[in-house]
Design a protein around this nucleic acid. Structure first.
Lengths: 117, 117
DNA sequence: CATGATACCTTGTCTGACAAGGTTTGACCA
DNA sequence: TGGTCAAACCTTGTCAGACAAGGTATCATG
């Protein structure tokens, strides 16, 4: 059963926008990973499902922007994999986003709870 | 100085996607508001700046989806304003989103802090 | 050597944010 | 009266990014 994609409502798709990118960078800041692995790992986190059609173009953009490096590597007898790692520019961008995210998150929390009491 | 739009980096634009919609609904759940007022109120919240070019189509979509009602009303000698209020379907959608948001927020928090310790 | 799984990538479609316009209404003032 | 201004509405066109649905290459296993 190839090309399986877990469906999640339309609302969540929009939520992921502009965040998945940095989730990927955050994972890469911990260890080198390859595209397919990133898709699977994200899917294991609640609400972060993506597909390869999202991931590969995304990784391409990060690379073009100089935020990640790539290198092909073969482990054992597996087929070669293209590993991504964070550049220092990537690390800086990630750090900056962590601030943006915290502010944004707090704002949304506040606005969404306006009605409740 | 008409049509002024505060510029915020490109990253934040994507963040707002899929969230502003529910921020609007949350505000409407508290009290009726009109479009222009919503733009100004959102702008007063950190990271939620939008423009009229975003707001009016958004309100139109909410209306088409049956999530909000509208009624023109004139207060004093002001020009008439188109007030929006939440329908019960809107209230349900908002409540559902509050759950989605909480889960999503927690996931992102977790992933973003992977590297830090 | 056929099949299946892994792993890469591309094309096309759709949604929604935004810039940059435009229109209407009423207040204010000369 | 008529000109200007701001409030308030709306539309058009452009762009980015998510995703579905394909395709291709490599390797293990039967």
């Amino acid at each position: 059963m190839p090309h399986m994609t877990k469906y999640q409502g339309p609302g969540l798709t929009e939520l992921r926008r502009g965040v998945v990118e940095y989730c990927v960078m955050s994972m890469l800041s911990k260890e080198e990973m390859y595209g397919f692995q990133l898709v699977e790992t994200l899917a294991s986190h609640d609400g972060l499902v993506t597909s390869e059609g999202t991931m590969y173009p995304l990784l391409g953009r990060l690379h073009d922007a100089g935020l990640v490096n790539t290198n092909w590597r073969q482990e054992g007898s597996n087929r070669p994999r293209k590993y991504y790692s964070l550049t220092s520019a990537g690390r800086a961008a990630l750090e900056s986003f962590r601030n943006d995210w915290a502010r944004f998150r707090d704002t949304v929390d506040k606005v969404l709870s306006i009605s409740g009491e």
